[in-house]
């Protein structure tokens, strides 16, 4: 069975087909989900190279789970969001183990986030603010406000309750607002 990139076959059907040996199904799945995995990993990690590694690893796990995939138990996208999130969390935790000497020193007298935003566009300003959030808040905010998932979907991805998701997204958004408020004019939003 041949597919093109705009195949109407559902994600689950394609995954089961690949699990049964259909190479063309893998091609469509790769086109659909590699950008998603890369986008979320880049938002979570703030590092393109690491995000690329995470995206490839997440897709590899998708290929491996395919023969055992049970239709109706979970959405492929939800499963992939979860894998990407977990891989990113692992990397962020390893980063925390980096020695103090390896962390760049902030420049004297200038808050690092403000200094970086001067030279960056709005998208990068948002990324910097996201990077400053605790990882769980960042994960919830990225999934809710950038990926557009519903709270129950995020709850499934993060394996927590819906109320916990609401709390994380609310706190995350408040923190982003506080972080970005001082840069409103610099980003061109100063006059409403």
């Amino acid at each position: 069975m041949a597919f093109d990139a705009n195949s109407q076959a559902s994600d689950e059907v394609l995954l089961v087909l690949y699990g049964n040996g259909d190479r063309a199904a893998a091609h469509v799945l790769a086109l659909r989900f590699t950008p998603l995995a890369l986008r979320v990993a880049a938002r979570m990690l703030g590092d393109g190279s690491e995000a690329e590694d995470v995206a490839q690893e997440a897709m590899l796990r998708l290929w491996r789970i395919a023969p055992e995939w049970r239709q109706g138990e979970a959405r492929v996208s939800t499963w992939l969001y979860r894998v990407v999130s977990n891989l990113c969390t692992d990397r962020l935790r390893r980063r925390r183990g980096v020695g103090l000497d390896e962390i760049a020193e902030p420049e004297d007298g200038v808050p690092p986030v403000v200094d970086r935003m001067i030279a960056r566009d709005r998208a990068n300003a948002l990324q910097d603010a996201l990077d400053a959030l605790p990882e769980r808040q960042r994960q919830a905010v990225v999934l809710r406000h950038i990926e557009g998932l519903t709270n129950p979907e995020i709850a499934a991805v993060m394996q927590i309750g819906v109320e916990a998701v609401e709390s994380l997204t609310a706190r995350g958004k408040r923190a982003l607002t506080a972080l970005l408020a001082a840069q409103r004019e610099e980003l061109g939003y100063g006059h409403g």
């Binding site: 190479r23 091609h27 590699t34 950008p35 880049a42 690329e52 290929w63 998208a123 950038i146």
Partner: peptide
């Protein structure tokens, strides 16, 4: 507005990433 911009952002796959992903799929198969 920043969120909206981010949602509309199109991610360009780095060169070679899709090929590596597909190579992994073939190897698993």
């Amino acid at each position: 507005k920043l969120f909206e911009t981010a949602r509309c952002e199109v991610v360009d796959l780095p060169p070679g990433l899709l090929a590596r992903v597909l190579a992994d799929a073939d190897a698993e198969l």
